[in-house]
Design a protein around this nucleic acid. Structure first.
Length: 404
DNA sequence: ACTCCACAGGAAAATTGGGGTA
DNA sequence: TACCCCAATTTTCCTGTGGAGT
């Protein structure tokens, strides 16, 4: 038998530092974002003259460079002025007034404040204290700011505004990043007016812009002749299709390079990109499935099972019957048919199932469902859930409720 | 034309789960 | 600890419906 390590030995054909293509890596050049950078620099530059800059709201879809650009500009600002401190807060994680204050205080001070336990006003005073003591300008970046507002309304913003005005000689300002252009419409008018923000818009990239971005990113990663131009074009085209998403394009390129390295290929062509896209989509599906609530998972599993035993009637009622059996089997108490009907609608909305109206005339009207993806794949990902791992399809009866 | 199946999907009531409070 | 409150989830109850069968 051949030594299984043989194909990994010898010199690798491709050398690449893939960390430069990771999602959170901040590059040092931003093709086609010169205007946005200039705007931001202009606004923030008032710090150099000793006055507080306006608050900034950055709008743009995912993958348009909002976060990276903001991080880059603020980093440059920190280098140019030594009295600036930048706090990056991802509101997906820190989504309450409390946790944001903690994040600020912790970056401003020596000792960590516990994530839980202190009353909010004590945290507030502590934060205020620390900010004043440093004597620095604070710029607070609120990434995914829309999350914050959806979760706690304007409360969190209000606290921040209060912080801005309570600090002597106003030394705090914020940059909000969002992909939802309507965020500010839903908050209190008083808060809105006090924000006195300027907005910067990041429009989607088109294909040729994404092409430039990929090329410029690749320069530092690997040699120029390793990646086919056609591969870059394909990546760019896919990214442009997805609302001008440069991040997806870069992700695809990174995965493609990973594949090439692992398979010991010496070139990245359109094929590698197609493979990368497949893997990417798989991960999306897997992620979508793994975050589903328990009963949605069982319903989806039931849909798969129903298709296996009765491919022609993957119908609400059938799915429900099987759902009940599976719940029985696994020891969960089933939800009502009405609820399952809604869960099925949700699954269809998520794109995990295809939904069709089906009219059987005398025999009623219902909805029929079919798999969008390979049933085996779906099942595999579903069974990764420890609650469902005990499921054995052999236990499922081979008949439907119609035969007896 | 009328019936009737097998649901869809709206509305409201009921349950559940977390947190606060006396 | 017992109780209450609030919101989210789920159930109960309901009316509506397109077309094959008659």
């Amino acid at each position: 038998m051949d030594n299984p390590f043989a194909r990994f030995a010898g010199t690798r054909t491709i050398q690449a530092d893939l960390s430069l293509l990771e999602e959170n890596y901040v590059p040092d050049s931003f093709p086609h974002r010169e205007n946005q950078i200039n705007e931001m620099v202009t606004i923030l530059s008032s710090i150099l003259r000793g006055s507080r800059p306006s608050n900034i709201i950055v709008y743009g879809k995912t993958g348009t460079g909002k976060t990276s650009t903001t991080k880059y500009v603020t980093k440059m600002l920190m280098e140019a002025a030594n009295n600036v401190s930048v706090v990056y807060v991802n509101c997906e994680i820190y989504d309450s007034p409390y946790s944001i204050l903690v994040a600020i205080a912790n970056s401003a001070g020596e000792e960590k404040i516990p994530e839980l336990g202190w009353p909010i006003d004590r945290i507030y005073r502590e934060t205020l204290d620390r900010v004043e003591r440093t004597g620095k300008f604070f710029i607070i970046i609120l990434d995914e700011m829309d999350r914050l507002i959806k979760k706690s309304g304007g409360d969190s913003l209000y606290v921040l505004l209060k912080l801005m005005t309570d600090v002597d000689s106003v030394r705090v300002s914020m940059i909000g990043i969002t992909n939802d252009t309507t965020v500010l419409e839903n908050i209190d008018a008083r808060i809105k007016s006090r924000l006195n923000q300027e907005s910067i818009v990041f429009p989607p990239y088109n294909a040729s812009e994404i092409k430039d971005i990929i090329s410029s990113r690749l320069e530092k990663v690997l040699g120029s002749d390793v990646v086919d131009q056609t591969a870059i074009n394909l990546c760019a085209a896919i990214g442009a299709q997805e609302h001008g998403d440069a991040r997806k394009a870069i992700d695809l390129m990174r995965i493609a390079i990973e594949i090439a390295i692992r398979e010991n290929r010496n070139k990245i062509t359109e094929n590698e990109i197609y493979e990368a896209r497949e893997r990417y989509e798989m991960n999306v599906i897997r992620e979508a499935i793994s975050t589903l609530p328990l009963h949605s998972k069982i319903v989806l599993l039931s849909a798969v099972v129903t298709q296996e035993i009765e491919p022609n009637s993957v119908i609400t009622g059938e799915i429900y019957e099987n759902y009940r059996r599976i719940c029985d089997d696994l020891g969960f108490s089933p939800l009502s048919p009405r609820r399952i009907s809604d869960l099925l609608t949700e699954l269809a909305d998520y794109g995990l199932l295809m939904m069709d109206d089906r009219n059987m005339g005398k025999y009623g009207r219902t909805r029929s469902f079919s798999m969008v993806h390979q049933a085996e794949t779906i099942k595999k990902y579903l069974l990764e859930d420890e609650n469902l791992s005990m499921f054995k399809s052999s236990k499922m009866p081979k008949q439907t409720r119609f035969d007896t």
